[in-house]
């Protein structure tokens, strides 16, 4: 009986999360477009525009290029969308515990984050277009490039929590219960601030946004990876993009801004769920604004070689500095 209960909870939870991911993801994309437009002194499309776009795309046919490998070409968008929804199941949404709360940790999430990217690579190679092929090659390079600073950030956080005596430091529940800012001294706060900045700068690459969008690069590759995608398949990639935005922002929120309103203000449990949820959405929007909207309108696209240099040298070194500060902070307490 309990197995059925668990199964039911998982299925319902997954469906609820998929619905949330779909609605919140597209809304965030709409808000991002609106804010970017206002920063560029434009009015921009209405916030519901991504919904209109998806509704239209879903009504359109899939065009499969002659040189494509059809099964892979069709499978890639489904994998990309499904894997982003899967990540959402491991992330706390406000006061609501993740569906797979006890089952996975930060390391799993870092691995899962590569799945949509790999699905896009597979789809790009399966398209059989030179632009998509170059885009897929670039996506792989970018994937390798931003993994280094991301891994440094994740390891630094977990190591510091372990040093502070937190059991299971890689578990998001443990991170949420012990906000990183609380366990460190001033040096560590500077270190974590650096790591927060790094996570914010990894986000545009993860989402293939300017300046790290060499894999799609409209003016060079005409859409790169996605150049041959149309109709329903493209809608799936588009929705995955929205969900991924939520995932990246929620990850940053879960690690660096884990507080809930109900921790500070006394309220009834029912109100607390709603208030925490609203507070979570506000935090996600804030993170998305600074790490996606503002960055993408304020600079030019990097070359692929520059992306690698930026992530390996500049953010890699910065991450190590952050890590060093956190290490010093941990031993400062001991000394």
């Amino acid at each position: 009986m309990s197995l059925v209960d668990t199964a039911l909870a998982v299925v319902l939870g997954t469906l609820a999360m998929a619905a949330f991911g779909f609605v919140a993801g597209l809304t965030v994309l709409g808000i991002d477009r609106k804010l970017a437009a206002h920063m560029q002194a434009r009015i921009g499309p209405p916030i519901r525009q991504p919904f209109i776009d998806v509704a239209k795309l879903l009504r359109k046919e899939n065009v499969v290029p002659e040189n494509a490998i059809p099964w892979l070409f069709h499978a890639a968008p489904v994998i990309a969308f499904a894997s982003t929804i899967t990540i959402l199941l491991y992330l706390p949404i406000g006061g609501i515990a993740p569906v797979f709360g006890g089952a996975g940790d930060l390391i799993l999430i870092v691995y899962l984050l590569t799945v949509p990217a790999l699905a896009m690579v597979a789809g790009g190679f399966a398209s059989g277009s030179p632009y998509a092929t170059i885009g897929a090659q670039r996506e792989m390079v970018i994937l390798m490039a931003y993994e280094l600073p991301l891994a440094i950030a994740v390891i630094a956080i977990a190591w510091r929590l372990a040093a502070a005596g937190v059991a299971e430091p890689f578990s998001l529940a443990a991170i949420a219960a012990n906000p990183v800012w609380g366990v460190v001294g001033p040096l560590g706060i500077v270190g974590f601030a650096i790591l927060f900045v790094i996570l914010a700068w990894v986000t545009p690459a993860e989402l293939s946004r300017v300046p790290f969008d060499a894999q799609e690069a409209e003016t060079e590759l005409a859409g790169g990876l996605l150049v041959e995608y149309s109709g329903k398949n493209f809608a799936l990639f588009y929705m995955a993009q929205g969900v991924k935005t939520i995932v990246m922002a929620a990850l940053a929120v879960a690690i660096f801004l884990p507080w809930n309103l109900s921790d500070f203000v006394a309220m009834t449990p029912a109100v607390a769920v709603v208030a925490d949820f609203a507070f979570f959405l506000a935090k996600v929007l804030l993170v998305a604004f600074f790490s996606v909207s503002l960055i993408r309108v304020s600079m030019a696209r990097f070359r692929i070689t520059q992306i690698v240099s930026v992530y390996w040298l500049w953010f890699g070194v910065l991450g190590l500095v952050g890590l060093l500060l956190i290490v010093l902070d941990a031993y400062a307490g001991v000394w």
Binding site: A37, H38, M39, R42, G44, S298, M299, V310, L313, W314
Partner: peptide
């Protein structure tokens, strides 16, 4: 590539963008 690091600090567009966020759009 350290020059790249110095350069990262110089993004004169960002203050303009944040100001524009609170101004009227130019579109008719």
């Amino acid at each position: 590539m350290l020059e790249c690091g110095d350069a990262m600090a110089n993004l004169p567009m960002i203050p303009e963008l944040l100001k524009q966020l609170f101004r009227q759009p130019a579109t008719n």
